[in-house]
Design a binder for these strands. Sequence first.
DNA 1: ATTAAATACTACCTTGTTGTAGTATTTTAC
DNA 2: GTAAAATACTACAACAAGGTAGTATTTAAT
Lengths: 137, 137
Amino acid sequence: MNLSKTSKYAFRILGHMAKDEHALYSAQQLHKDIYVPERYLRRLLTDLSKHGFIKSIQGRHGGFTFACDTSTITLLQIVEAIDGQGSINECILGYDICVFNHSCPMHDVWEETKLKIIETLSKTSLKDIHYKILEDL
Amino acid sequence: MNLSKTSKYAFRILGHMAKDEHALYSAQQLHKDIYVPERYLRRLLTDLSKHGFIKSIQGRHGGFTFACDTSTITLLQIVEAIDGQGSINECILGYDICVFNHSCPMHDVWEETKLKIIETLSKTSLKDIHYKILEDL
DNA sequence: ATTAAATACTACCTTGTTGTAGTATTTTAC
DNA sequence: GTAAAATACTACAACAAGGTAGTATTTAAT
């Protein structure tokens, strides 16, 4: 159960871009829209394109656009790309080895909630966020 | 949604002490039992006693013991004491102001899960963990 | 070709968290 | 009273995450 600030930034970026799935977004414009530090945002955009969520187009009228359909990108995929695989699934007591047959004292207490978190993150795609935004209008 | 390593250490300490609620635990023994760095553990014990969860007894045969009934200490209280009030309730996109009438795009998607997390942490007391441990035997 | 506007790469600075060290203080067995 | 065994206090070291800077590269309008 941990979500780095950088993962939250990634949510902001991709969630915002999902508003118009096929548009081209420049780093400069994104910076103004979602309040992520500009240089850090640029680095993160490069990172996200390396992970295959978006693709970058260089040159005078370049920018970033989705590399695949937004319905195929889940929040869990984004977190795992940024924070590392299994980052959400970590033991709540911080023990390295905590599996069902050698579990920590709080394992069962936490298990159900952890599954709920993972379920939400893995079942919510960027397209779902997109719809949500439209509803908000 | 954030749980610092220090909070996890606090869970380990208090969860372990809850096994025998009225016993006196020395820092040295706790260190051996729960693998928290000894000096850091001592500092954290002082901190936890200042927060009123436990009380310290100085002197030759001193140590730490609970300052109140373990059934009155919830996991949420522990997290909020260590990581700060509202640390769990933070916006998933990292925005400072994100309330129901000015919510972020992901607010509704995340709300239910967040409530589940808070409910679990606030309904689980150290005594519950204690019982869990007994069942494990 | 030149230039403007974008991304890419690498290195470094800053900040917060985690962990360590040294020393002081308290208490009790002897 | 003295020493042992515990906690308390303060400062700092180490590390990781977040953020910045400078420069290089790519592309297309002109």
